[in-house]
Nucleic acid binder design. Structure first.
Lengths: 252, 252
DNA sequence: CCGTTTCTTGCATAAACAGGCAAAACATGC
DNA sequence: GCATGTTTTGCCTGTTTATGCAAGAAACGG
């Protein structure tokens, strides 16, 4: 049994069950618990899972936290990212903006005098845009998921399908040069895919803690990213991997 | 059973029920009550719940700051109306709620422990409902009209057409026994008509200043009103006209 | 007021953990 | 083939963590 083989099986099992037990994996793989622990440590270091006493759980840095707690996290960083992301816009453009606290920060950072057409499935983004006089706002309805703060489901997909946008501000849950953009939720990923399909370019603004992490559901490949907005302290190695796939990197 | 797993289950249960009991959790998890108490203590320290004697409850619901500046007008009256209107509900019902400050007040007045399915095209109503754990929220998307705070247009109509409700909380612009319910905007009236068509009963809560007034666009006849919630000071003559057409009148 | 329940604290135990070490497997260069 | 270096793995050692139990404190309900 190869080390890499075990790693893959651990990832699979984690995606399926949401958790793994060190002892159980050891007997299943026929190796010592020490080896399994080493595996788990490495995968945790790569951000592919979260290590807990007795095993590991899915690497949802914030999946456990509620929306209100998430928005408190790294407020200044997200505001800086938001200002940089807004700089990518020009008047008259049409945008998709999906959920996530970073995207809400972007919505709040928009200047009052810019003319845009924005379609969003995030109530937070929508609320932030209601005050802007020159923004034509299209709300993408559907089943509302409190944990995400967004609408998902077939209604949302149908609404997205009728629209097109110049840019898609993708609220990324996980971002990895090899695995691309990934999401924690199947329905959420579906909506993101639909938005990506109907937009000319994808913009992703992320804090460092989301770089080089991945979630179960794939949204798009890294080569689909046109603009990547990151913190100044983002590891250059990681960024280079995205740049080589065509992404323009912007520092906040 | 991992510690983290228990924590997640506690969070889930808290989101669903709003409270948890230490003893119940202990037997459910198959651990001692001490362990559960330790779990609760940790989660409380992380701000994810509020510890109370015997168990825990959801942490202080954060204030929903929304776009209700104009709703300063007659706040007390609308809150009273809202409380009376909420009394008409029973668990398990499905509702349409459209826009207007009175309907937002009704949404805010809903108790945390009621199970409902609510479809709304008002961002204010939707925001107020996002915190309620037992409410399944369906957002009716479409073109957002800042002046109304609601979504209208063909997308909205299409979404409404796919749904049905027991009650429709109609935010009325004008209400007159002879001319029925009327609205100021054509697109708005269209959505209201669609909601009225797909619901079993219409509920209207109005302040006195809207009684016996009318706007250009007709939504429904006065005979379509099942429940009319009004202030105690509403003129009896006007109310009698509605009652004679089948409306039940409720005083706030 | 008192009895009951619930809570905290301290302690003991067993499990899980990280780090060091050496043997085995593997690759590399001569 | 042989020597050398690297990687992987299991085992050992001391440390940390989770848990249950017991005893005292605090909160609740009459």
């Amino acid at each position: 049994m190869l080390t890499e083989e075990r790693h893959q099986l651990i990832r699979d099992r984690l995606a399926a069950d949401g958790k793994v037990l060190a002892g159980e994996l050891a007997s299943r793989f026929g190796v010592s618990e020490d080896t399994v622990r080493r595996d788990l440590r490495e995968l945790a270091k790569a951000g592919q899972l979260r290590r807990v006493y007795g095993g590991a759980v899915t690497s949802a840095p914030f999946a456990a936290a509620t929306l209100s707690q998430r928005s408190r996290h790294a407020v200044e960083e997200k505001t800086r990212l938001a200002r940089a992301a807004v700089g990518l816009l020009s008047a008259g453009q049409s945008l998709f903006i999906d959920g996530g606290t970073t995207n809400e920060a972007i919505a709040r950072a928009l200047p009052r005098d810019i003319q845009l057409t924005v379609a969003t499935n995030s109530l937070g983004v929508a609320s932030a845009l209601t005050d802007l006089p020159l923004v034509e706002l299209i709300v993408l309805g559907g089943r509302y998921v409190p944990d995400l703060g967004t609408c998902v489901g077939s209604d949302t997909l149908a609404a997205v399908a009728q629209l097109g946008a110049d840019l898609f501000f993708l609220g990324s849950c996980g971002l990895d040069a090899a695995r691309g953009v990934t999401a924690f939720d199947s329905a959420e990923a579906e909506v993101k895919r639909a938005m990506a399909k109907n937009s000319a370019g994808i913009v992703i603004a992320v804090t460092n803690d989301k770089l080089a992490t991945a979630a179960p559901y794939r949204v798009a490949g890294a080569d689909a990213i046109r603009h990547l907005v990151v913190e100044k302290t983002a590891p250059p190695v990681t960024l280079a991997a995205f740049q080589s796939q065509g992404a323009q990197v912007h520092f906040a």
